[in-house]
Design a protein around this nucleic acid. Structure first.
Lengths: 157, 157
DNA sequence: CTGAATGTTCAGTATTGACTGAACATTCAG
DNA sequence: CTGAATGTTCAGTCAATACTGAACATTCAG
């Protein structure tokens, strides 16, 4: 059970590293990676501690974080005291909708900046204005992309 | 010179905070924010230390990082020992092309994972496969968006 | 009721990494 | 040559935070 899984676990670790680069704790990334390939897709907290070799407390905190980000969900089975975690079916669309929220924040940050520069000559405002336009553009277009992808995948599962 | 700039500097700080959330050091974000609104658009290292109240060494390191990310560039003026920094004209397109590189890395990480799951039944590979497809989709579509934006802005500056 | 199984909270540890200040080049003016 | 101005490198400090282990609930089986 251990040997054949080893390359998989290394892959999961790498997955964790990637997510660490984008600011999330590594354990959260590893959980996500593991839930991406684990069999069965539902894994209990103790399954996770065993597979990923991290403490219960860490699993508890990281799983809650992933839940709050809308990336995983808890499932409870009748007659089973354990809780199970699994990826949400719409994980990636969700994750990217989050990104769109960041675009919105950036765009409105730019708006506030432009207000502060109100009295300044136009050529001084040009840079900030381009910044604003850029984020506004992606704020508008990326949801369309997500929509496209969802529609493209509708008939499949 | 100090009082009227104060709200601007608070804005710059906030800009730094936003960039900190995406994993960059705060000082780098503040430099970028400042170069976005500063007058003139070219700022020397000592201008930056004075405006942002951070050490020379910090400016030196952070500016180099921003340079490597392709976000700012150095300008030297004949007869002036100082170097000046300014934003690159294609900052945002550049920053997002960077993001596309991350999509590529993710997609190829998924490819490697799929290879490891080669022997597994299809329904086990489904999650990872969807992950792969998602990133492949954005890897392909986001450059088109960037292209669109560049073309849309061509006639303006 | 007792104790095992599950899960959360919290204090303490350890690591990472951003930032400062000083020492070290380099270039140029006088 | 001397010294001021500019910039880089490096060692040390400090803060943030991910993670562990223990203590603390809660639930249920026997």
């Amino acid at each position: 059970m251990n040997d054949p899984n080893q390359p998989i676990m290394r892959w999961v670790d790498e997955f964790g590293l990637y997510f660490e680069e984008s600011g999330l704790p590594r354990t959260a990334g590893r959980i996500l990676g593991w839930l991406l390939v684990a069999n069965p897709p539902e894994q209990s907290a103790s399954d996770l501690t065993e597979a990923l070799k991290v403490s219960k407390s860490n699993i508890s905190a990281s799983a809650r974080m992933l839940q709050q980000f809308g990336l995983i969900e808890r499932v409870s089975r009748p007659g089973d005291r354990k809780d199970y975690y699994r990826m949400r079916s719409d994980v990636w669309a969700n994750a990217f909708l989050n990104k769109v929220g960041q675009f919105t924040r950036m765009r409105s940050l730019a708006d506030r900046g432009l207000k502060l520069l109100d009295a300044a000559p136009d050529e001084d405002k040009a840079r900030l204005n381009e910044f604003r336009e850029f984020y506004a553009f992606f704020e508008k277009e990326v949801p369309k992309l997500i929509e496209m992808w969802i529609r493209r995948n509708e008939g499949q599962s």
